[in-house]
Amino acid sequence: MSPAAPGSDGQRATVRLDVWIWAVRLVKTRAAATEACRGGHVKVGGRPAKAAQPVRVGDEVRVRIHGFDRVVIVTQLLAKRVGAPAAAAAFDDHSPPRPTALEAAQVPHRPRGAGRPTSRERREIDRLRGRES
């Protein structure tokens, strides 16, 4: 079935990833959604996704915004931007809780000019930022 072909209930079977992210208000502009995809900040099913990738109901979309991951499950496909209550009904939010101010302050600081972090230091930084592989 093509992405633009209507489904049996009159809705689209798929929607472009950048359009859906913008429509459900995870980002402010469509251009920001496209840039997030190009920058590798958006994953569908755990894999980096391009802006034109089709999104289907049931897909897990992970968007990195302002240093934090938003993990959402698609429950409804939207191709146009809608109000906040309707947008919130279009996905189930499974995002981890944001760290408290005290936890966020514990990010390690490397002195400027100290060189690249070692593999061990990089793993520790990733663990603290919540990006464990």
Rank of each mutant, 00 (worst) to 15 (best):
R127F: 14
R98C: 02
E60Q: 05
A31Y: 06
A13G: 15
F91W: 04
S133K: 10
R123D: 11
G58L: 00
A49W: 05
V15N: 02
E60C: 08
T29M: 04
D93Y: 11
A89H: 03
T100W: 03
G46L: 10
D93H: 05
R98I: 12
R110S: 06
G113R: 03
R25Y: 08
R12E: 13
W20V: 15
D69C: 10
R62W: 01
V55N: 04
G67R: 05
S133P: 04
F91T: 11
D18S: 15
R25L: 10
F68T: 10
T118E: 05
R110K: 13
D92R: 10
P117F: 12
A89L: 02
P99D: 00
R98N: 00
V15D: 01
R120I: 12
T118F: 05
L26Y: 13
S133M: 11
A101C: 04
G7H: 05
C37V: 10
K50C: 08
Q76L: 15
T75K: 12
D126S: 07
T14M: 13
D9Y: 12
A4I: 12
D126Y: 07
R38I: 14
V55F: 06
T14L: 11
G130P: 03
V61T: 00
R129P: 02
L78H: 03
G45E: 06
T100G: 11
R56G: 01
T29W: 06
R56C: 05
A33W: 07
T118W: 08
S2E: 02
P111T: 14
V71R: 07
V57H: 01
A31N: 06
W20S: 09
R122D: 02
D9F: 11
